[in-house]
Design a binder for these strands. Structure first.
Lengths: 362, 362
DNA sequence: TTAAATTCCGTGCACGTGCACGGATTTTTT
DNA sequence: AAAAAATCCGTGCACGTGCACGGAATTTAA
């Protein structure tokens, strides 16, 4: 416990032989400074390695930044629950830094809902925006308005190409499919034919971006490269119709009794896991994505063998952090497209898969 | 961008009908306050939901906390390199919070070095200490001195039982062995005999804590439970003697030609990986621990199939954060023993295994 | 040569909290 | 009853930066 001795504007002023007002004008290049004084001040700053005191600065300039967040709304246990819930934590974490977060949740199945919330959001006049752009076209239209007003924005989870986004944080989709195949087939596998089942969920809205297609490409890429004699059978399920799905799966396994390895490229692996449990087919290996609570249960009970996950809360934190850096310091990260780690989860490491976030602002 | 309107001590004073000095005395319960005023102030604080302004506080009480860090010194590419290097980042990240980090690196092969650095460290009079206690006995003796001076301390990576540590951050060793076995044997394996090789590194200093023994127990636990007809053969290597090790391995595989799955419970899987490459034995499955640069290379080239890793930098961040919370707010986390996630790394997700740290303090 | 405009710069207050000092009131002692 | 002690509390300055105001010095206009 000792006392501070970092140098201040007053020190800079003394060294430069000017007043602290002049130093201030130089630092915030606010004009009204002669070239001579400017050079003296810059020299002094460098000489004594002056760094502004964040606390004094934040205290004196008593301003708040407002960040708007547009995420899909959610039902309990669904994919978007975690990012939504973690907003509250983030809010607390950045409150001390004079940053206010406002949310504009939209219906992920209704693009008009997105447009409505976007309008509402723009009307509030935010300083920066974070968006999960489920509706690519609508999001793209929104970017044009933000560009016009010079409001910086960041994409989460999905990316909208050819826009002026400040940064993007998400999973590498192709690679996550590739990784999935490598897990399902395992290392040291002798070559030879093998049958694999792939179940997708039918989508009705073609405007929605579908990362699953890219994942499947990655998956097939691995198989083509490493085990070209493997065969993948696709089948289509429905989001919530258990009876229908069970019938489809019964038919599928009757037709393909040799299929022991199963993959799903969305977050609904629990659908098939439920089937495997009820039909006593636990020997089949099932791979899924995203750590929903129900997926976690099936992972622990053995119906799901691998889950590939990313820390969705981390996307949020990194996104907000990037916006803060931009707003407060005009810092733009050198890396626009940021891919999150792909975490491999099994029954034996899932219990220790806790939050990795460290926030140092008290 | 709008202006702040959070309430201040002045507001509390007004509501409570006292002066801000009295409010201050209540907040820091520094005595000299009548029971009556105390109650009025507490009531007022609750009523208007007063939260102190961190920046004003940090600015006014111009004090610095000093945290001492005792880690093993390292050679490039070794296990302790990452924690050591990340200290510099942490230092920057906490500098704005009036926290100074001082390091006392010791020789991890010489317990007298530990004692010497410990003495030096204690002489400097730190406010808190973070320790990686490679030498359990020596660390234990150090804790007694720190207890006497009421200096809080935290353990990293290894834990010293029966001490008053504030918190511990590390990998769950037993479970990491259990997980390793589950990966090596894979899901959906039919029961039947199988031979597994385990290579340890000879240690000469019994005072050094050895997590590897616990890891092996976890490994064997899985095999006993799930695949009791598997057989594990142990073999002993030396840290740096390539010629000796190759001879040992040659003999081992001549004796046990059926062994195709290999495990090492320390960070030196690269030793065996090098052998496998030179002898063209890439079909054997090798499991190791800890993401050294050289292990990463062998992972990508296929000689190592699985690495189980933890984010060692995260240990450091969480440890320092816990100390900060204690020093600044007297906050003690409800959880003393904190186990880090066990990350499964393969050739196909390693490239995206980047730092997950988000620091919000600017 | 004087007045007006321009350029440049110093002064001083505000932000909200920590803390030292000393004053006012009450209680205890002699 | 007077003096001493103890208890309680208000005032005011300091922390380092942001920013507004106005003054001094210089240049331009009249």
């Amino acid at each position: 416990m000792k006392t501070n001795n970092r140098c201040t504007v007053k020190d800079v002023a003394r060294v430069a032989g000017v007043s602290k007002g002049t130093v201030d004008r130089v630092i915030h290049n606010r004009g009204d400074v002669s070239e001579e004084s400017m050079q003296k001040v810059l020299q002094a700053i460098k000489e004594i390695n002056y760094k502004p005191n964040l606390h004094a600065s934040l205290l004196a300039s008593n301003k708040h930044f407002r960040i708007a967040v547009m995420l899909p709304d959610y039902k309990k246990g669904e994919y978007w629950e975690v990012p939504n819930l973690c907003i509250n934590d983030i809010r607390k974490d950045v409150a001390d830094m004079n940053i206010i977060i406002e949310t504009y949740p939209y219906n992920q199945f209704d693009h008009r809902s997105f447009d409505g919330k976007a309008e509402e959001m723009m009307a509030s006049g935010p300083d920066a925006v974070l968006i999960a752009p489920v509706f690519l076209e609508n999001a793209k239209r929104l970017t044009e308005k933000m560009d016009a007003l010079k409001i910086p924005y960041i994409f989460i989870d999905l990316n909208v190409e050819d826009t002026n986004y400040l940064a993007y944080f998400g999973m590498p989709l192709f690679e996550s499919g590739y990784l999935g195949a490598s897990l399902l087939l395992g290392p040291g596998r002798e070559s030879g034919p093998e049958e694999i089942g792939h179940f997708q969920i039918r989508r009705d809205n073609s405007n929605q971006s579908s990362g699953n297609i890219v994942r499947r490409e990655g998956f097939m890429g691995y198989i083509r490269e490493k085990h070209p004699d493997c065969r993948v059978y696709d089948e289509c399920l429905l989001p919530y119709d258990k009876e229908y799905n069970f019938a489809v799966l019964d038919a599928f396994f009757e037709k393909h009794p040799g299929v022991d390895k199963l993959a799903m490229f969305n977050s609904r692996a629990y659908t098939v896991a439920e089937y495997l449990r009820e039909r006593n087919l636990s020997h089949k290996i099932l791979l899924g994505y995203d750590l929903l609570a129900v997926n976690k249960e099936f992972l622990k009970s053995g119906q799901i063998n691998y889950l590939i996950s990313q820390r969705t809360d981390m996307q949020m934190y990194k996104g907000i952090k990037a916006l803060c850096d931009y707003l407060v310091f005009s810092n733009v990260s050198d890396c626009r497209d940021n891919y999150m780690p792909m975490d491999i989860l099994t029954a034996y490491n899932i219990d220790y898969y806790t939050s990795e976030i460290v926030v140092f602002n008290f």
